[in-house]
Design a protein around this nucleic acid. Structure first.
Length: 604
DNA sequence: CTAGGGTTAG
């Protein structure tokens, strides 16, 4: 039996021990050896084949050698170290060998190594080609190495490859990941022939620097061109844009596109969908998608837990969290932010404290500033002001304005001027000068009848030219969004709205509502205060929606700032009197008013 | 004669 036929029988263990003598046989061996190589299914098997080839003295055939490296570097079971050791034995590696090694290193995230190989290649006078650049660019993008990326871009020009579509895509990604979005756009715009990958890259790049509006514009441009159909990755970026822009209508359109074009949505897409629905107010839709997911991962659990949290459904959030642990998924810091904020929004003090302990001691996560923020919030809302303050003082990281602001607003709710002053002072010390914080402090002084301090704060505000951003409420009706500010008279139906307010007021009184003026900051008499309170933006928006939308339909309102206590109570009454579900979204969470109660259980 | 190119969520 000749040795070649033994080889053809495919088992390397039957390789002969005597190397063939003639060069013709040697060449034949390479063909057989190669097919053998390619059939390897594990590193173990591969090493044995390799040993045999070495023993047969056939290694230095460059074709076979290259394939050895390629197989070892690129297959799923490959080992980069081993590939490297073979690579280093090749006397004159060419661009194929370097490309292979660079790619293998990028795949296994040895990014610096990949770049070093690229440099070595240049030093040895080996010309990188159109397959080299996409990989080294990817290494730069994963490293966020803008400086190196720019250099490589220069090399691309020198090599005359700036028109290669794959190189261009690589450049767009590299610039995008390094945050140099203008450069990414320049490359993109200069492309003659854009591929779907180019669109995906440029849209993803805009998403990664949070240019949400541009994301959606680009998607529009792409569809307008009509040459490429949006694929999953693009739509994930677009969904994320909708979520951040709070644009549920557009989000629903994208859901439609997905359903029409893609048969089975992947985990990433479903996760973005859930996030979009939940953050734009449709918790139920989000839950529905979540429950229909065959496989879930950390991301999916995070969005649903965070979603339940912002809707005030703390208990359910905790139960989903325990499902997650039961599934064997390890929680990370982000999931815990969701869990803790769920506790804080729902007033689950003991559970929150317990989770904070588990996070540190069971799951060995170092609490971040956000976790501390949640805990301060949790304790503060529950009236444990001293505890919250002590926690801040004991933090191993420097507290930021967000943490102090949580404490400040807790002090406002629980009327603790002493700690409130400390909190405010610390915010100002961080060079944060938000009119809102000054006003909260002024309000607390006013309540304590410390008029001199009120005046002092007001002068300070004037000196710093701080003007409070006016609160507004957005409401959807007749497929349009209408904006109301307090005391708004700019709407054409203004009179009807104010008449409606009168009518509502009458009914409210009948049901036992009394205006709560404690949060009106203006220095005016009681009558004037009462008058002002009546026409807060949210009330105008509700009146408008009651007139404009069909009976029994849900009213959705978005606000830029928290609503005052009075608007909260008022809306509860309206929900029962007019039999409407009303959803109000403020900066942090959703309030669902129904049958006279709010999902936040007056705890927000 | 060889391998190979982009991207996705909290």
């Amino acid at each position: 039996m000749s040795w070649t036929s033994v080889l053809c029988q495919s088992h390397f263990l039957s390789l002969p021990n005597n190397p063939p003598q003639s060069s013709e046989l040697n060449a034949k061996f390479n063909v057989q050896g190669l097919s053998l190589l390619k059939r390897c299914k594990s590193m173990e098997e591969f090493k044995q084949v390799h040993a045999h080839i070495l023993k047969l003295g056939l290694f230095y055939d460059s074709f076979c050698g290259s394939n050895l490296v390629a197989t070892c570097a690129l297959s799923r079971w490959g080992s980069m170290e081993y590939a490297c050791s073979i690579f280093r034995q090749i006397e004159e590696p060419g661009s194929f060998e370097y490309n292979t090694m660079i790619r293998g290193n990028v795949n296994s995230m040895n990014l610096e190594e990949a770049l070093l190989l690229y440099v070595e290649m240049l030093e040895r006078g080996i010309e990188p080609d159109n397959f080299t650049y996409p990989f080294v660019l990817k290494a730069c993008s994963l490293l966020g190495a803008l400086k190196e990326g720019v250099q490589i871009h220069a090399h691309v020009f020198k090599a005359g490859l700036e028109g290669d579509v794959f190189v261009q895509n690589g450049l767009i990604n590299m610039y995008g990941k390094c945050g140099a979005i203008e450069h990414a756009s320049v490359v993109f715009e200069q492309m003659d022939e854009k591929s779907v990958a180019s669109w995906s890259s440029i849209i993803g790049a805009h998403a990664s620097v949070e240019m949400w509006h541009e994301c959606l514009m680009l998607l529009g441009d792409m569809s307008g061109e009509g040459r490429h159909r949006a694929e999953e990755s693009i739509l994930v970026s677009a969904l994320s844009a909708c979520t951040h822009l709070g644009s549920p209508n557009f989000g629903r359109c994208i859901h439609g596109i997905l359903l029409r074009n893609i048969s089975e949505l992947n985990v990433a897409v479903k996760t973005s969908l859930i996030d979009m629905y939940v953050k734009s107010g449709s918790l139920e839709k989000g839950l529905c998608v979540f429950q229909n997911m065959a496989q879930k991962n950390r991301y999916s659990y995070t969005v649903i837990i965070t979603g339940l949290a912002i809707h005030g459904r703390g208990r359910e959030a905790l139960s989903v969290f325990s499902d997650m642990l039961e599934e064997g998924l390890a929680p990370d810091d982000v999931v815990y932010v969701g869990v803790l904020s769920a506790c804080s929004h729902a007033g689950l003090v003991n559970e929150g404290l317990q989770c904070f302990n588990r996070l540190q001691f069971e799951h060995k996560i170092k609490p971040t500033i956000q976790h501390y923020g949640c805990m301060v919030d949790l304790m503060g809302r529950a009236g444990m002001l001293k505890g919250a303050y002590d926690l801040i003082k004991s933090m191993p990281i420097k507290p930021n304005d967000v943490v102090w602001r949580s404490l400040l607003s807790a002090c406002k709710v629980h009327h603790n001027l002493e700690i409130g002053e400390i909190a405010a002072e610390n915010i100002f010390k961080l060079n944060q000068h938000n009119p809102g914080d000054y006003l909260v402090l002024a309000n607390m002084y006013a309540r304590a009848k410390k008029w001199a301090d009120v005046a002092r704060i007001r002068t300070e505000m004037a000196e710093k030219h701080l003007v409070q951003t006016p609160g507004f409420s957005l409401v959807e009706a007749n497929r349009n969004v209408y904006k109301f500010v307090s005391q708004d008279k700019s709407q054409p139906q203004c009179e009807t709205i104010y008449d409606m307010i009168q009518q509502m007021e009458w009914q409210l009184k009948f049901e036992g509502y009394t205006p709560d003026m404690s949060q009106v900051l203006l220095d005016v008499d009681e009558d004037e205060k009462r008058q002002r309170l009546k026409h807060h933006s949210q009330k105008l928006a509700i009146a408008f929606a009651l007139i404009q939308t069909s009976e029994g339909s849900r009213i959705r309102i978005s606000r830029n700032i928290r609503m005052c206590n009075d608007c909260h109570t008022y809306t509860k009454f309206i929900s029962v009197i007019y039999e409407r579900e009303i959803t109000v979204r403020d900066r942090n969470r959703f309030h669902h008013f129904k049958d006279g109660t709010c999902s936040c259980k007056d705890y927000w």
